[in-house]
């Protein structure tokens, strides 16, 4: 047996332990990260009076708050697209956060592009997240559905996990409420924090 053999064996044993530990640790870390929701909105029972978002009275309105650089919010916008296809009576407003002291154009990127492509959607740049505060939202992807009278009918996220698009109870609830006009709904919201209060 050459002197290198025990060293090679030890290396393989260490690598085997690292390999096994990695699989367990990665599974657990990813799971914790993706299933931990952001802070839920603390919003009132009706459309906030202080809001400058031009709501069309007598129409269903949907407000989505997004951080333009939150990669998870691409899935939220994708889900919003699916909702809009099924809910023609809903007028969507996407409020895109931008800090006032950052240079113009900072908000450009995949999330803003996707939001701009949404049919019927009005994309509004939300300087310093003022509107997000008025709606009581902290987390990117926060979705609020208001009925024709401006009453809050749904508050929450419309993705099943962080950055995961696909059918989920948030999306289903919004479509059901908007089409039937019956009931209310809540769902955890997954995304980056728009406001530091949204950091958990």
């Amino acid at each position: 047996m050459t002197p290198r053999v025990p060293l090679i064996r030890a290396t393989i044993v260490v690598a085997a332990l690292v390999w096994t530990a990695t699989i367990g640790a990665a599974f657990s870390a990813i799971r914790r990260f993706e299933t931990t929701p952001g802070a839920a909105a603390k919003t009132g029972p009706s459309w906030p009076d202080a809001s400058t978002v031009p709501r069309q009275r007598g129409e269903w309105s949907l407000v989505m708050l997004v951080h333009p650089h939150c990669s998870c919010s691409r899935a939220s916008v994708q889900e919003l697209e699916a909702i809009l296809e099924k809910s023609p009576s809903v007028q969507p407003y996407v409020l895109v956060y931008r800090p006032a002291d950052f240079q113009a154009g900072w908000e450009r990127g995949a999330v803003l592009d996707a939001a701009s492509r949404l049919r019927r959607a009005k994309v509004i740049i939300d300087e310093n997240g003022r509107e997000a505060k008025r709606f009581g939202g902290f987390t990117s992807g926060q979705t609020l559905l208001y009925d024709r009278q401006g009453r809050l009918r749904f508050a929450g996220g419309i993705t099943s996990l962080r950055g995961h698009s696909g059918i989920n109870s948030g999306r289903v609830d919004v479509i059901r409420i908007a089409s039937s006009g019956i009931g209310t709904g809540e769902h955890p919201v997954f995304g980056c924090a728009i406001d530091k209060k949204g950091t958990k």
Binding site: V18, W19, A21, T22, I23, A25, A26, A29, I30, F33, H67, H69, C70, S71, Y97, P99, D101, F102, G129, S140, C192, A193, I194, D195, K196, G198, T199
Partner: peptide, 21 residues
């Protein structure tokens, strides 16, 4: 992101550490 502050995304750490493992 948290407002205007950013930190390296969890996915980057996962790609570096779990990928190496």
């Amino acid at each position: 992101w948290a407002g205007k502050e950013r930190v390296l995304h969890m996915h980057v750490w996962v790609a570096i550490l779990a990928g190496a493992g």
